[in-house]
Amino acid sequence: MATQMTDGHRRFLQVLMSHGIMEGSVARTLHRDCCEIHKVYYAHDKLDDFINVVNIHLQPFFMQIRKGMSEDDGRTYYALVNLAETEITKMASDYTENELELFRKTMDVIIISESGFASSTDILNLADQLKTKKMKKKEAEQVLQNLVQDKWLSERDGEYTLHTRCIMEMEQYILSNYQDLVRKCNICHSLAIQSQVCETCGIGMHLPCAGKYFKAQMEPHCPHCNEFWPHEIPEINRPDSELPSSAPRERRRTPSSGTRRH
């Protein structure tokens, strides 16, 4: 297989770099357009191969394009992540020491909570207890805004959770630093920040995974201990098509493409 970078790959990388993260169908459209513009080989189902070529060349810089699922809508996303833990990485160079401490403490609250959210009140209280340097409420609010803008956190109705891009980048870090606290989804087995948790046995599921799993069941039961599932069953979004977003909506399914693998 060809491993040569073309201008098509470079353009794809540039656009992804400027967005940080991209929904699957948008990435597929971009893939098609980049190949067309630069007249390089294109096959609509070869996006992951195309990305692999880019990844080979990104290795020396500890960067990688990763594919992952959003905990909010269950859709596939592609993100450019940084794997280096040096002082040069984006986070370390954009934030001061006490801002980083606030982020880490926020992450603690989010991960320890069952729902995967921290309220802004909780976070603003943390700002007052920072060891490095205390932060005023106004400052902390600004930091939160920056963290949302830089896609470390995402906000919904005054509650904060980890951004999909952040989870994709920090999955390994979170799994090894929060070993006993963190949950893996019982369905897809990847890290679960926002989840529904069984009140009896304590297993957790991503909301989209729970939605899919319980879709066909009249009376939802825990897949692990078989107790009644006490949570509201999340609605699932239509799965994203495997074709570029503006392509005609004919669906092609190979027998194995029904489930998502991560």
Binding site: F61, F62, M63, N82, A84, T86, I88, T89, K90, D94
Partner: peptide, 17 residues
């Protein structure tokens, strides 16, 4: 030297964001 070059590339990309 490669390591330094790689660090510089990362740094320039981060700053250019």
């Amino acid at each position: 030297v490669d390591q330094k070059v790689s660090e510089l590339v990362q740094y320039l990309l981060v700053k250019d964001q």
